[in-house]
Structure formats: C-alpha cells, structure tokens
Computed example of a mutant assay.
Amino acid sequence: MDKARRFALPDAARIKTGKEFSLIRKRGRLYRTPHFLVYTLKNPSGQGRLGLTVSRKVGNAIRRNRVKRVLRECFRLYLRHQVGGYDVSIIARPGAHLLSLAQVLEEMQGRFGG
C-alpha cells in the first residue's frame, strides 16, 4: 500500500450520492462560519462521514481542489473523532481557498467545540 492510499479518507467515511446530500441538508442542523456552511445529521452507523460541495464561485479548478484537500485533511486528522456518528456536509464559500489548514481547523472547531 503506498503512502497516499494509507492516509486517504476511506470510502466508508464519505458521503457520495445526491440523495444523501439532500437528506442531510433537509433534516440536518446548519452551522455557519465565515467561509463554510456546515450541515450535520446523526447517522445510524456510528461513524463520522464527510461530504464536500465546492462550486465554481470559490474559484478555478486548482482553488476548488485545494479547498477539498484541506477540508478532507482537517476532517481526517481532527474532526472525524469529534463528529463520530454524524454525517457532515460542508459547502465552501468564496474566499475559502485562501485559508490554511490551521485556519480551517479553527473555524470548524469553533462549531464542534474542540
């Protein structure tokens, strides 16, 4: 197993389908930060899962991919244990591409108490 795969977020920790995203947004709780909208919904599996939405309003493909990488890393390293048992759907807002991992973590921990 190469290093990149070893540190990747497993498939079981990802929200993939549009149906799942819709359900989380309809029934979940909304938290707002300066650069993100964060929806959370209790799930029956007991494992924290992450879904990301980063639109073109955030920037070009390079900027959008950077935002996704930083959010996944933040979730993988820190938030996954804090939100165990919850599905978390994060929508990035314009300006999110300017944030470092530490700044993203600070915004998220303000919401999840870290």
Rank of each mutant, 00 (worst) to 15 (best):
L50P: 07
T33A: 13
K42Y: 14
N65K: 15
G59L: 03
V38W: 04
G85K: 06
P44Q: 05
R76Q: 03
E107P: 01
L41Y: 05
R25I: 09
Q109I: 09
P10G: 03
P10R: 03
F36Y: 10
T33S: 14
L41Q: 12
L99A: 04
V54P: 00
L37P: 03
Y31K: 08
T40W: 02
E106V: 04
L79R: 01
T53W: 03
F112G: 00
L30I: 13
G51M: 05
L41E: 10
G110I: 06
G59W: 00
K19M: 11
S55C: 11
Q47P: 05
R69Y: 14
A13C: 05
S89H: 07
S22R: 14
R76T: 07
L79P: 00
N65F: 11
R25D: 01
F7E: 03
I91M: 03
G48S: 15
Q109P: 15
A102F: 05
L9V: 13
F36W: 08
F75V: 04
D11Q: 13
C74K: 00
R6S: 04
S55N: 15
L71N: 04
N65W: 12
H81P: 03
G59H: 04
P94S: 03
L37I: 14
A13G: 04
F75L: 09
V54Q: 02
V58T: 14
R72M: 13
L9C: 06
I15C: 03
L9E: 06
G110W: 10
K68P: 08
T40F: 03
V38K: 00
G110H: 07
L30A: 06
K57Y: 09
R80T: 14
Q47F: 14
M1S: 05
R93V: 10
T53Q: 06
R49V: 00
P10H: 05
R63C: 13
G51S: 12
R6D: 01
